[in-house]
Amino acid sequence: MSSAEIALFDIEIDVNGQRMTARVEPRWLLADVLRDQLGLLGTHVACGYGTCGACTVHLNGEPVRACLLFAIQTDGQRVTTVEGLGDAAHLHPLQRAFQQEHGLQCGFCTPGFLMTAEHFLRTTPHPTRAAIRQALVGNLCRCTGYQFIVNAVARAATELAASAADAPLAEPQDGVGSGERGGPTPGPSPSADEEG
C-alpha cells in the first residue's frame, strides 16, 4: 500500500519568522504537521480535541489550538510556537518566571500555558491575580495545581511592565485590571516554619 493514493498539498507557513514548506494531507492537523513534518516538538498534544490547551500556538498573533486547525488552513499565515518565544540563551521573561516560580513540574502543559500567557500579557500588562486565573482557564495542568503558574505569570507581568516602562515607547496599555496590580503577593505562599 502506498500513501500516494491520498492527495497531498504544498503549503507554506511563516513559522517563528521562518518560511517553512510542507506537503500535507488536507486532514492533517496543524499540531501534527508542526511536530512531525517541521520538527517543532514543543507543541504538545494532550487531548486532541480543544479542551486542554497544551497545543496552544499563535496564528497571526492570536492564540489558537493547533489540534483544532488543519495545517492547510494556515497556508500563507504566520504561526508562532513556543520555540519562537525564546531559546536557552535568551529565555522570554515568562519562561524565566516559570523557572523561578516553579510553574512547571512535568512540563507537558507548559508550552501551552506560555503561549496563552504571552498573548494575555501583551493585551493585559497589569493583570490582577484573578484576571490571570481567568486568562488561564482554557489550559489544564495536572501537576502544579496552578498556584505557581499564576505566581509565574504575575512575576513576568511585573518584569515586562518594568522593562516596558524603561523603553521609550511603551506598548499601549489595555485597561483590564490596571491600577490594582497584584492582588495577593505574587511571591510564594506564606510558610510558617514551626520548630521541629
Binding site: G145, Q147, P190, S191
Partner: peptide
C-alpha cells in the same frame, strides 16, 4: 480542576 476552580493554598510547615 482548572485555574479558576482552585485556590491559593496557604502552607504551614513542621519539620
Amino acid at each position: 480542576p482548572g485555574s479558576t476552580d482552585t485556590p491559593d493554598y496557604r502552607l504551614y510547615e513542621q519539620h
